[in-house]
Design a protein around this nucleic acid. Structure first.
Lengths: 188, 188
DNA sequence: CGACCAAGGCTAATGAGGTTAGCTTTACAG
DNA sequence: CTGTAAAGCTAACCTCATTAGCCTTGGTCG
């Protein structure tokens, strides 16, 4: 049998393909093995089990989101940076609903590190905005909650009424950003 | 065989028991049938399949949350009512993390009606606050996003840092409520 | 060159879980 | 007392995940 050139990374690639085409529920070891042109048990030479595949996928997705956020926010500061940050997040979820859905239902501990990168970017933005320490943590939690909640509800089709979603999101961003605590140091 | 007195409702009761004790992943037809003292296939006399059980559970949970919200918000108005509404929601998720987790991963269409009740309560609050029409919809979406996002992240252990969560939630509520658009009609 | 050996594949088998088909029993109405 | 529909049951099948144990490949080193 010709070697299939598998690796944990390659398996995650295939899993993401499946997620994009069929949704998170389509990710079974048989499906992944099928795409790899390999018998199902062969996958166990590269990953511990299905749970690990899901965890690796989650980490990959989180990293992908963090990368986009870092790129697009680079060079911005203050309210502009926060707007951009929140926009990137929503855009990512809209463009990749399956991936985001797959991400938010995997193990905690392994995700902590990947999630930490995203929080770090946010904390950096808030620092540029004049927030440090506990204030920054509270603010970051508010931003994350709002963005995550909106993104999840939108992706799930939870907003049924025929009123423009972009407008709603604009308002949410304004609420959060203008509601940040006033600091002595005016933001850059 | 003595009749077991099953019904879709009774099945949902058992499923909720399992969710509370073992989490949403424990809800299998075998597990439900076991608690009912019945063979697995017997359940099919009352529900179409596992997916329907999950949908019914979601509807029940949504209704439960809506009931609590309506009760606790009754007689309040303005900012006070919105605070109470947001508090009830978070409290429910904290007290019933498994149920909420089970709810947010079921079919959309069947949930629409149950979810609508919750939105109606919120829209009523916002009307008392002076918001109508599209403004009210936008505001309701912001409130839902913030509350849902915070609740989900908290339940998933997504807030790792040792900073008080109650304080964060207070700030989030204030951000949202004080960020509501000003209306000509001052709220009651 | 050729033997070794580990990595990477494979088949077979087990067990959980969902689902269907078809038979049997219960409970109640007439 | 009997007929019938609802509510059980067993048997069987399918898909998946997972484990065990075997075979092959391909590179490394004598």
């Amino acid at each position: 049998m010709a070697r299939a050139g598998l690796s944990p990374d390659a398996i995650v690639d295939l899993a993401l393909q499946i997620i994009d085409e069929e949704g998170p529920a389509g990710v079974t070891l048989s499906a992944v093995a099928g795409r790899a042109g390999v018998a199902t048990p062969s996958l166990y030479k590269h990953v511990r089990n299905l749970a690990e595949v899901n965890t690796l996928v989650s980490i990959r997705v989180m990293d992908e989101l963090a990368d986009r956020a870092r790129e697009l926010v680079l060079g911005l500061s203050g309210a502009e940076a926060l707007h951009a940050f929140m926009n990137v997040w929503r855009e990512y979820v809209r463009s990749n609903p399956g991936r985001y859905a797959a991400m938010i239902q995997a193990a905690q501990p392994e995700l902590a590190e990947a999630g930490g990168r995203l929080v770090d970017i946010l904390l950096a933005l808030l620092r540029g905005y004049g927030l440090e320490g506990a204030d920054a943590i509270h603010a970051a939690r508010c931003v994350r909650s709002a963005v995550h909640g909106f993104a999840v509800l939108e992706a799930a089709g939870g907003f049924g009424l025929p009123v423009d979603l972009d407008d709603s999101y604009e308002q949410l961003k304004r609420m959060i950003i203008s509601g940040l605590p006033k600091t002595d140091r005016p933001h850059v």
